[in-house]
């Protein structure tokens, strides 16, 4: 599937894929229930991305430190990520940060602490229930410099060259048209701006039952691309200094995403970094 960015897991229609993802994450926002791995009964319930509960131990495994977790009011950390982009985005005061798939807002609120007082953070999410929840969390965290909007990450409602850093946490894999996501990220970034994304990458071909399982797609598994494919998409979008680093230790929590099989055989969480070339002097 090298450059075929139109192909989604199980060759599903992109609209159908988006609908499934929105339904699943709408339910999580409302009920705080399962996200990754098989929805429902057989999900391991001991933390990590899958259980959708506010679990400090799970978040520490993803790379958040205890002080980060404690600094944000309850309700924003749904434990749905697969890393911590705010740890390697190297944000500076005054910068504008855009979070693709901001969920209940946890990473946005952490980013806001880094860019305050003059910077700002914009979270985009396509799930109305998530954006509502995030907006409630703005008040709880007294986060004046964070704004959320309903939007779709391959059709960003963000003006050209207005953003310094694009972050995202375990979301791009859910997008049926990843090339468009990277192209739109490139468009909104200022020259010299960068992406700092945590996401799952595929390390081995999925068995058919994983590939075709709708829950596997919406659960951040079957939509994952390979490192080579992501590199090719970023390069094609115009990015330079592309650095995709799989985190071998992540297989520990990924293995908990499914009780029936070890997803660590096929998936690893990676940091994905790239830069929009600086303008010529």
């Amino acid at each position: 599937m090298s450059n075929d960015t139109e192909t989604v897991a199980g060759d599903r229609d992109p609209e159908e894929t988006r609908k499934m993802v929105r339904e699943r994450y709408g339910t999580i926002a409302t009920d705080g229930q399962d996200c990754c791995g098989d929805a429902g009964s057989d999900v391991a319930d001991d933390g990590g991305c899958c259980d959708g509960t506010e679990d400090a131990t799970g978040s520490e495994r993803l790379g958040y430190d205890t002080d980060d977790i404690a600094s944000i009011a309850d309700g924003a950390d749904l434990g749905l990520g697969c890393g911590n982009p705010t740890a390697f985005a190297e944000m500076a005061p005054g910068e504008t940060v855009l979070d693709l798939g901001s969920g209940a807002g946890f990473d946005c609120f952490l980013a806001a602490q880094e860019v305050c007082p003059d910077g700002r953070v914009i979270g985009v999410d396509m799930t109305p229930e998530m954006v509502s929840k995030a907006r409630e969390n703005v008040a709880k965290n007294d986060a004046d410099n964070v704004e959320f909007r309903l939007g779709e990450i391959s059709h960003l409602p963000v003006a050209d060259e207005t953003v310094d850093v694009v972050i995202s946490n375990c979301v791009v894999n859910l997008a049926p048209k990843k090339q468009l996501v990277f192209e739109d990220a490139y468009r909104v970034l200022r020259s010299g701006g960068r992406v700092a994304i945590s996401d799952v990458v595929q390390t081995a071909p999925f068995p058919d039952d994983v590939r075709m399982d709708p829950d596997s797609l919406t659960g951040c598994v079957a939509g994952a691309s390979t490192v080579a494919d992501i590199e090719a998409m970023l390069d094609s979008a115009g990015f330079e200094a592309i650095d995709i680093a799989p985190k071998d230790e992540s297989t520990e929590f990924i293995s908990d995403w499914d009780a029936d099989r070890d997803l660590g055989d096929y998936l690893v969480s990676a940091t994905i970094e790239a830069r929009k070339p600086p303008r010529d002097p």
Partner: peptide, 21 residues
């Protein structure tokens, strides 16, 4: 046109706005 409701701008592409749960 894109609605702002409950303080949230809905900037989804129109075809996705209509299917929103």
């Amino acid at each position: 046109s894109y609605p702002i409701e409950d303080g949230i701008p809905n900037l989804l592409p129109p075809d996705m706005r209509d299917e929103a749960p």
